[in-house]
């Protein structure tokens, strides 16, 4: 098939926008519902994220004149675009046409929304936005070291930066270690509870999002949901060589992918409901002191296996 057409289909249909946007709403609902059930509440109805999104589209925004306003409006769109691109790169279907090095592109696209959030907080010129952005920047420097080391150790042990090859690999002790390290980084990447300080509500209003309203806020919500899909999808593809086993039937592969992603969402929601927000110094210390050791261990053993065994 024409590679251009395949790439477009992946970006726009599956696992891209047409699948990812409802999946994003579904994951946001699963997270809210799971937290509610943990707190013995009924929780929001199934369509709630969709209603929130639609309502925000219909709200007005404060006037933002000039180039500063234009930049402020651009950040959420860039975040949505990069998160959707990251979802589109995930190797869910058989022979989906990845290329050598697409793991690096995926990591860059996964990182872009967080950079957009930092920039958005500073360009909104609200003091709460600036505090939130500074926290997000400090947090992102901390967890990204661990996150990148974990992924590089998985990639180095398999000797490839190609997602399709990583998805098809057989699990080893190293991959399990790497996946655990990635799971530890996900709450910080998704700003959920032990590490929810960039958008700590009641504490610094809404952090970087404080000045955003209406359709712009809707785009941020969508970008957040797409980040959920991309991040949990990455774990799902790494966990499951089962997807590779099921590659005979595309439908089954897609189904396993979705089930695994929902399992990761549930795991993270339970963690979010069970913990309280940490202060910035303890979060940074957690990643630099406790987690970094394991990441360094993982990458050094990966390099050892690669070059000496």
């Amino acid at each position: 098939m024409n590679p251009m057409l395949t790439a477009l289909a992946r970006l726009l249909i599956f696992p891209g926008l047409l699948f990812a946007v409802p999946a994003a709403w579904f994951f946001l609902w699963v997270e809210r519902k799971a937290v509610a059930r943990m707190q013995e509440r009924v929780g929001p109805p199934f369509m709630q994220p969709f209603w929130d999104f639609t309502k925000l589209l219909g709200k007005s925004t404060p006037p933002r004149p000039g180039i500063a306003g234009f930049i402020m409006r651009a950040w959420p769109l860039i975040a949505v675009g990069s998160a959707a691109g990251a979802v589109g790169l995930l190797p869910v279907l058989p022979l989906s046409g990845g290329f050598e090095g697409d793991l690096i592109l995926l990591l860059a696209l996964l990182e872009l929304p967080s950079i957009c959030i930092i920039a958005a907080g500073f360009s909104s010129r609200s003091i709460f936005g600036e505090i939130g952005s500074a926290r997000e920047a400090a947090l992102s420097v901390s967890y990204n070291i661990v996150f990148l080391l974990a992924i590089v150790s998985i990639a180095a042990s398999q000797h490839t930066f190609r997602l399709e090859a990583l998805a098809a690999m057989h699990p080893s002790f190293l991959t399990v270690l790497g996946i655990i390290a990635i799971l530890i980084c996900l709450p910080a990447k998704l700003h959920i509870n032990p590490f929810s300080l960039p958008n700590a509500e009641q504490e610094i209003y809404s952090g970087p999002m404080t000045e955003y309203a209406g359709p712009e806020l809707a785009m941020w919500e969508l970008a957040h949901g797409l980040e959920w899909v991309a991040a949990t999808g990455l774990v799902a593809t790494l966990v499951a060589p089962h997807i590779a086993l099921a590659w005979g039937t595309s439908l089954l592969a897609g189904g396993i992918f979705v089930v695994l992603s929902v399992a990761v969402v549930l795991l993270l929601s339970v963690l979010a409901a069970a913990t309280a927000r940490l202060a910035i110094d303890s979060s940074v210390r957690f990643y630099w002191q406790c987690t970094l050791i394991f990441a360094v261990l993982a990458i050094s053993s990966a390099l050892f296996v690669r070059f000496w065994l």
Partner: peptide, 13 residues
């Protein structure tokens, strides 16, 4: 929250 009510941190939201 079962009626969709959320307490927001910012008046803009």
């Amino acid at each position: 929250e079962q009626l969709g009510v959320l307490l927001q941190g910012s008046p803009r939201h």
